[in-house]
């Protein structure tokens, strides 16, 4: 067993590359999904029923479809419509599209529970439209959203492992190729699992730090 782990140590650069890809895909994907989700929350909260119906339809659809299924649709399906991505980009697109729906639903939920009075005060002071949303509503939503966004980020980190199936060189893919080369599946996958664990711990520490900042304003 010690020999196995020393073999892994020798291929540490490959695992590290995988880890970096996992982190990059997760962070970039989560950041884009959060930004787009915030935009998508606006029609979800709109008074126009058509806007609401269309945006709700997209969100509910994404919540019914497994992430891998959406990845396949992006990777194999979109080229049929003339949109061709390399594996990495296809993976990122799938993460962003899928999680935009989840982020939007998180934001909508908090937004709808926000105190109406602070929004009304802003209206009385002449805020309206995008500026009302961006200056008064979304900052308050983000202040409360830390733990839920953290949970979603953990979900995204875990979902990136699916991308091994379309050969994106992320952590699980790297681990799988190392174990296939040296036939040391136990040591490699355990190492990978521990790395995922560490990543999720980092996210939880981050959420804790953000909560301390938010706490001062509650």
């Amino acid at each position: 067993m010690m020999r196995d782990f020393s073999l892994i140590w020798q291929s540490a650069d490959r695992l590290l590359d995988g880890l970096i890809n996992t982190v990059l895909l997760s962070l970039v994907g989560a950041a884009l999904a959060l930004a787009l989700g915030a935009l998508l929350a606006i029609p979800l909260m709109a008074s126009n029923p058509v806007l609401r119906l269309v945006s709700r339809g997209f969100v509910d659809l994404m919540r019914c479809v497994p992430f891998l299924m959406l990845t396949y649709l992006v990777y194999y399906g979109l080229p049929r419509l003339g949109l061709r991505f390399d594996n990495w980009t296809a993976g990122l697109v799938a993460i962003v599209v899928y999680n935009t729906a989840y982020m939007a639903e998180i934001i909508r939920g908090i937004w709808s529970r926000l105190e109406r009075e602070t929004i009304e005060a802003a209206v009385a002071f002449g805020f309206h439209g995008w500026r009302l949303v961006s200056r008064i509503i979304l900052p308050q939503v983000m202040l409360a959203a830390g733990p839920m966004i953290g949970n979603q980020l953990i979900q995204i980190i875990k979902d990136t492992a699916f991308l091994t199936i379309i050969a994106v060189p992320e952590l699980t893919h790297a681990a799988n190729s190392i174990q296939a080369q040296y036939f040391i599946p136990f040591a490699t996958f355990i190492t990978a699992v521990l790395m995922y664990w560490a990543l999720c711990m980092v996210v939880e520490v981050g959420v804790y730090a953000v909560e301390r900042i938010a706490e001062r304003r509650r």
Partner: peptide, 23 residues
């Protein structure tokens, strides 16, 4: 619980399928 909640199902599946025979 902490470990399994942060382990991707894909990775867990590979671990079980390929590693159990080794032991």
């Amino acid at each position: 619980v902490s470990l399994l909640r942060s382990t991707p199902a894909v990775t867990l599946c590979l671990l079980i399928f390929f590693a159990l025979p080794v032991i």
